[in-house]
Structures are given as C-alpha cells and as structure tokens.
C-alpha cells in the first residue's frame, strides 16, 4: 500500500490515505465539539484532490454516519443525548431533506442552481455567524457582570434569547410533549418537527448534515442546553445521514473505502471533541462556533468569484 497515493477504484481517484485520515481527524474534533457534520470542509477537501462532486457529497455523508456514531456514543456516556428529541427530529429532518433535494431538482431545470445555492449559503452561513457571535458574547458578558460564569456543564446554560424560547414553549398546538432529559416541561411536537424540517431542508438544499443551522435552532428556539443540543444533534445526524448515505449509494455516489479511511481519523477526533465540551460552558462553545460557518462562506465565495471548485 502506497501512503502517498492509494487507488480507490470505485470513484476512480488516487488519494493519499494520510490526507484522508488527517482531514477526518480535524473534522472529527470539530464534529464532536460543535455537533456538526463538517461537510462544508470535507466536501471541498475531497473535491480538491480530484473526486467528482457527486462522489464527494455521497462519500462525505457515509463518513458523517461513522463519525456521528462515535461522537454520539461518547456524548451519550456524558449524558448529553436526548433520545426522545433525537428520534422526533430525525423524522422531520428526513422529510425536510427530501423537500430540499426536490428544490435543487427544480432549480436544476431552471438552470441557475449553482448561483442560487451559492448566494443562499453565503447569506445563511454569514447570518448564523453574526447572530451567534452577538448572542453568545452578550451572554458571556452578562455572566461575567453577575459573576456566574463557570466552566463546563456544571453551569446552568443561558442564552440571550430566552424570551423567544419561552414564546415557543407556550405555543398551544396539540400534541404538547415534555422533554425531561433536556429540562423542557412542555413544547408542541410541531415546533420540534418544524425546526428539524427546516434543518433537513437546508441539508437537502445545501448538502451535508446542516448541523450549523440545526444546533443553534435547538438552543435558541427549542431551549435545549448547548451540551445536549450538540449530543442530540449528533444522534439525529446518525439517523438522517444513514438514510442519505443509503440513498446516495443506490445512485452510485458513495466510495465506501474512502469513507472508511476518513473515518479512522474521525473516530479518534470525535472522541477528543466530545471530551473537550466538558471543559467549556455553553455560551463559550457557541462563541467558538462562530468561525465555523465562515469557513463555508469563504469556500463558497471563492468558488463563486473564480469559477473554480476547491
């Protein structure tokens, strides 16, 4: 086996396994820490070494399944997974992902899919970054003023958007359920379904797991503590990404050997990322999350301006 270039016959590419393991490791740390799939980095990273986009998207999804299993299991051991919430969200995500994919098909027929998707992703990623930077820095400052800032998950998670969360919890649409693990006494099932559906819609429309939008929505709209949002999001990604992988594999878009090699790095990275969450309070995790969507903005802007895919 050549460590500089191994031939992956399914996708017809020559890639260094060291490169794949390193990319997997870095994305694994990020995924375990923030609860995101990291597709906006993994996709371009696979594309950069000559893999076709269809294979990059499908293979990345397969690797996300493996990585999310490892990270979600670690988060579950740390008490950061709300299984009930995760299962409800998985159903909404799958429905949303299908609608997102249909939207892509519609834009394909109109012939302007690349431009529309690029503009939407730049606007969405930038807005998420700006919003979280504003909210989490405000919360951290308020905690410092009151002297309540503590380290890790011992802290009661706070957000500057608790007003919005309370309004969402008061929506009286049947059935109203409780989420004891997440500390939510009453919330309409439909609020959860709509939130996960929107996450799925972006997943189908922009690709990947869309954790960059689902994790903040879980914190600000559903009122889930950040540590639980990260863990539950990963659990939910296991189900929705498995569905996506199977669907892409049927279309011949998955080189499972590439995914397996990437995942060997991601497995240990995800464990490290999950353990690291113990050392940071919720608002600080959110603050550190700010540059993550901006990486996506940089990649999409570069592609849009130069016409070259990374």
């Amino acid at each position: 086996m050549n460590l500089l270039a191994m031939h992956f016959a399914i996708s017809g590419t020559d890639i260094s396994p060291v490169y794949l393991v390193t990319i997997g490791f870095l994305i694994g740390i990020m995924g375990g820490f923030f609860g995101v799939g990291g597709s906006f980095i993994a996709g371009p990273a696979l594309r950069a070494i000559g893999m076709h986009w269809n294979f990059a998207v499908g293979t990345d999804l397969a690797h996300i399944v493996g990585k999310s299993i490892v990270a979600a299991k670690r988060h579950r051991a740390l008490g950061n997974v709300d299984l009930r919430l995760g299962l409800i969200m998985a159903a909404g995500t799958i429905g949303g992902a299908e609608c997102g994919a249909q939207l892509i098909q519609y834009l394909k027929h109109r012939g302007n899919v690349d431009f529309v998707v690029s503009i939407v992703s730049i606007v969405i990623y930038s807005s998420i970054s700006i919003f979280i930077a504003w909210e989490s820095s405000r919360t951290v400052r308020a905690q410092k003023r009151r002297g309540t800032a503590q380290i890790g998950r011992l802290t009661v998670d706070e957000s500057s958007f608790e007003g919005l969360t309370k309004v969402m919890h008061r929506i009286p649409v049947w059935p109203v359920i409780s989420l004891p693990t997440s500390g939510v006494k009453a919330i309409s099932l439909w609020v959860i379904v709509v939130v996960s559906f929107i996450g799925g819609l972006f997943s189908g429309f922009l690709g990947g797991g869309a954790g960059y939008i689902r994790m903040p929505m879980m914190v600000y709209i559903l009122g889930i503590p950040t540590h639980l949002a990260v863990g539950t999001d990963l659990f939910e990604i296991v189900i929705s990404a498995s569905y996506g992988t199977f669907s892409h594999a049927l279309k011949g878009n998955v080189d499972i050997l590439v995914a397996l090699v990437m995942h060997t790095g991601a497995a240990i990275g995800a464990q490290i990322g999950a353990i690291l969450t113990q050392y940071f309070a919720g608002p600080k995790i959110r603050l550190l999350f700010v540059p993550v969507p901006l990486v996506g903005v940089a990649i999409v802007t570069y592609t849009l301006l130069t016409g070259h895919k990374l």
Binding site: V65, G66, S242, T245, F246, H263, A267
Partner: peptide, 8 residues
Amino acid sequence: AITLIIGQ
C-alpha cells in the same frame, strides 16, 4: 456500504 461504516 452502510453496514461497513456502522460496523467500523
């Protein structure tokens, strides 16, 4: 493919 990635 899905079995392999879950198994791994």
